[in-house]
Amino acid sequence: MKKIKSILLVDDTEAINYLHQIIIEKSGLVESCIAKTSGEAALEYLSTKLDGKYPKPQALFLDINMPRMNGWEFLEEYFKLPIGQQADVIVCMLTASLNLDDKERAEKLLGKNHFANKPLTVEKLEEILKRHFPENFSS
């Protein structure tokens, strides 16, 4: 199997970011993982060249409930970015499944299977990646 190149984590809670980073590392499915604690920081990261190239992560795990710019507001700005700067797949990270509205909204905006409940586990991560990057798991 081929490892996923990079994942961008966006969550205002540092502890959650750290937890998710540990899990992603543990899974061994991803080469590198970067975490940002606000939508603004994430947008800046995506639109800034590093070593002459945009980072363009393969997947972006987005927290919805954030101060100032929440997940939805982030997506509004995110879709204004050129395709060359956007990630291949976006996954909304929902705090439990209490708020059905958020789930529906994610489905409407991104399509099915673009959300996952917090906290992330190795199994959940594998399932998400298999669904969105089947070619990486084909052999």
Binding site: D12, T13, E14, T37, S38, P67, R68
Partner: peptide, 22 residues
């Protein structure tokens, strides 16, 4: 943000920058 700051759990800052529950 002036109009939304009185809503419950509405926060403008990261937990790391300014503590609070909103």
């Amino acid at each position: 943000y002036l109009s939304s700051i009185f809503k419950i759990f509405k926060r403008l800052h990261n937990q790391n920058t300014y503590e609070g529950t909103g």
